[in-house]
């Protein structure tokens, strides 16, 4: 055993060094964004060509570290926009998780006529460029009277082909024994799904939640066109505001971007905890 230890330690060091190196490669734009948000515009461009782009400004180089943030919040009602984005994004996530997981489960588990046809249709909806259906969708939502409502922002995006397909692939891997056992215990299909399958599928639910959150948090054109009332504006439209004020204040752009990015990182970190309690561990105990 003792002889094993040395290579094991070596291995661990190599692992950590590799992972840290990769972390640097993947993290640098985030670092650049955050660091730039603390700097003045001239300095942002001056630092761009060197490693200084990823370092915070020296105290003597800026008036105050959070100057850009203060200015950004003064110019645009970012809090309101973030609230709007949260409302409609979370709305889509809640309904989306229920509707899409059920559909994915149906496609993975049940035999019914046209099943493969529907799967192909769902994948086809994933392929079509969304730009191609923008106009008919807008006209539809307009005629439903949903312009400038949360309904118009949420309902068209609850059903999501990507999420259905992802759920289906996960449920395919589920051992049937659990369900069979539950069935013998007299559980209904709905009961089996919500009481057994859902609690054991936290990683995939977390994954879909992250996917939906990122997609809709980054939405721009649909919220812009469908919800053009100021009280309905979303964070991406708020961001756009900073990109539209020539001369562009890059420091404020970076501050606003940072404010818009942080919620996504927080959600991702938060949902991590569901990545360890999957079926694997429960399953192995049985």
């Amino acid at each position: 055993m003792r002889a094993m230890k040395k290579p094991a330690l070596m291995k661990k060091i190599i692992l950590y060094v590799t992972m840290s190196f990769l972390a640097v490669i993947f993290l640098f734009p985030l670092v650049w964004m955050v660091m730039s948000s603390l700097k003045g515009d001239v300095q942002i461009f001056r630092d761009m060509t060197s490693i200084k782009a990823f370092l915070p400004p020296m105290p003597n180089e800026v008036d105050g570290y959070f100057q850009n943030y203060i200015m950004a919040f003064e110019r645009v009602n970012l809090l309101r926009y973030i609230m709007n984005s949260l409302i409609y994004t979370i709305g889509i996530i809640i309904f989306g998780l229920i509707v899409n997981s059920m559909a994915g489960y149906a496609l993975a588990r049940f035999q019914f006529p046209l099943r493969n046809f529907w799967l192909a249709v769902i994948i086809a909806t994933l392929i079509i460029p969304p730009e191609s259906i923008f106009l008919p969708l807008y006209v539809l939502v307009f005629n439903l009277g949903w312009v400038n409502t949360y309904t118009g922002l949420i309902v068209p995006f609850i059903a999501n082909a990507f999420a259905i397909f992802l759920f289906r692939q996960f449920f395919l891997d589920f051992p049937r024994e659990l369900e069979e056992a539950a069935k013998i215990d007299g559980c209904s299909q709905i009961g089996i799904f919500f009481r057994i399958i859902v609690p054991l599928s936290k990683p995939v639910f977390a994954t879909v939640a992250i996917v939906l959150f990122i997609n809709h948090w980054n939405d721009f054109l649909w919220p812009l066109v469908v919800a053009n009332d100021d009280s309905m504006r979303t964070i991406q439209i708020g961001l756009q505001y900073f990109m539209n004020q020539p001369p562009i204040q890059w420091g404020q752009v970076m501050a606003a971007l940072t404010v818009a990015t942080v919620p996504m990182l927080l959600i991702f970190i938060f949902l991590q905890r569901y990545y360890v309690q999957g079926l694997a561990h429960t399953g192995s105990k049985n």
Partner: peptide, 20 residues
């Protein structure tokens, strides 16, 4: 099966398949 699939199918039908 259809009971589980129907909500998604209806929504996809109205907001994706119809525009498609």
């Amino acid at each position: 099966g259809y009971f589980f699939l129907l909500p998604a199918l209806l929504l996809l039908g109205v907001f994706l398949l119809y525009p498609m």
